[in-house]
Design a protein around this nucleic acid. Structure first.
Lengths: 232, 232
DNA sequence: ACAAAAGTGTTGGACTTACACCCATGC
DNA sequence: GCATGGGTGTAAGTCCAACACTTTTGT
């Protein structure tokens, strides 16, 4: 078996490494991503993810948290590594290896104001993935992978609560599922399922002052759902 | 939103990038991984994954295929990206970002001979993950993540066939599941489930010349299993 | 009263589990 | 025969999709 070449020996190569967080949220009943229009070449005026170079003494996860927080203007509610994209030709300026992250932002905390000041905008994921908008580099692929990861993780984890403010109703949670999956779910069967999963939601005892006075819940301690809540 | 610094501008940093394939196979009713003992410092004589630096014009997937093929002495039956490990202190020699891959090797194709010539050995994953053997760098963590990925992917994909030669019996397939999961499964219910999933296995019409003359199958076209085959 | 939001009850179907039993082959 | 490897039948249980219906509250 070939021994590993020393990473700093004569055979060592030099790569630029960036993190590319895909900050997703739900707005207007759709899944949206936080992007910015590129100012200069290459891909001028195309949509791009808010990436940045990783610091020489910075952990990848820390870099992703730094960049996603800066882009959104507030801390994200969930952050996980998505995958690494390193095709030699993916950036015409040179060899860049990008570690993509999936980040989720609560719906209430609209990043519009702080992010807009930095040039960031929320864009419907569907329009980007379908190819109806120009997207820089391989970011269309990254967006597609991020959306698919988010969609499938709603099935078997309690991640949907990360897309909601601290307190929410079962109906809010159902609308998150409906928005991310692009389907409509049976309200009563959905509520039965959610309340039957131990630790998915915990009741606060209080109610919203709206019609029907739905009960308010918090995210519970459970991280996974077993059996899962399947897409129709 | 902060613009991305040019990867080759003044703010650009320099990283070593490696691929670290975790080559898994089943032997002796256990899940085993292909490792080599380190020759020099750091972590001399500890077990390490067969990693190597990515070439400057090489795709990450290509590098992983090259390294896993070289380590095993034959092409792997499955290769997928597992995750990227980039803690600043993970290699005392400098900043190394490693893209880990999960690779699967058929049981019949024992890499013993070709790999042993290169210093590679198959080691039981359980003994490595539990901490009873010394493991270099953060490779124990990578091995744990790889084993968990393999175990969970057996549930909802048809990946188990990648751990078998081209033709196999339902019993062979069941023994793969039992070895990877470390459980025992009901033979007849298992066979019923496998044959009910469209495209999991396709019959060849031939039988093995052994007691009972079990029918031989090939891997079918389906990649996912729906509903999944759950761990007990 | 009416609309909106959520809880309850019930049915049938899909799937799983466990167990018992039968079939084919090689020795 | 009989051990080995596999296939079939069936009953109990779980879970879920679909539907109708009730309750609570704000306007």
């Amino acid at each position: 078996m070939t021994r590993r070449r020393s990473p700093h020996g004569a055979a060592s190569q030099c790569f630029a490494v960036t993190v590319e967080p895909v900050v997703l949220t739900v707005r207007g009943g759709r899944l949206e991503a936080l992007l910015a229009r590129r100012q200069g070449a290459p891909f001028a005026s195309a949509w791009a993810l808010p990436g940045d170079a990783v610091g020489l003494d910075e952990d990848l996860d820390d870099a992703a948290r730094r960049v996603s927080t800066a882009a959104a203007g507030l801390p994200v509610a969930h952050l996980e590594q998505l995958g690494t994209y390193g095709r030699p030709d993916r950036d015409p300026r040179g060899r860049v290896v990008s570690v993509a992250y999936l980040a989720l932002l609560p719906v209430g905390a609209d990043p519009a104001a702080p992010a807009a000041a930095r040039g960031g905008e929320l864009v419907a994921v569907e329009s980007l993935v379908q190819g109806s908008s120009p997207v820089a580099f391989d970011h269309r692929r990254i967006l597609r992978d991020a959306a698919e990861r988010a969609r499938s993780k709603l099935e078997y984890t309690t991640l949907a609560a990360a897309l909601l403010p601290e307190e929410f109703t079962i109906g809010d949670l159902r609308r998150v599922y409906e928005s991310v999956w692009g389907v409509s779910l049976h309200h009563s069967n959905f509520a039965r399922k959610v309340r039957s999963v131990p630790g998915f939601v915990t009741p606060t005892g209080r109610r919203t002052p709206t019609s029907g006075a739905p009960e308010l819940f918090r995210k519970g301690p459970a991280a996974i759902m077993m059996p899962p809540l399947m897409r129709p």
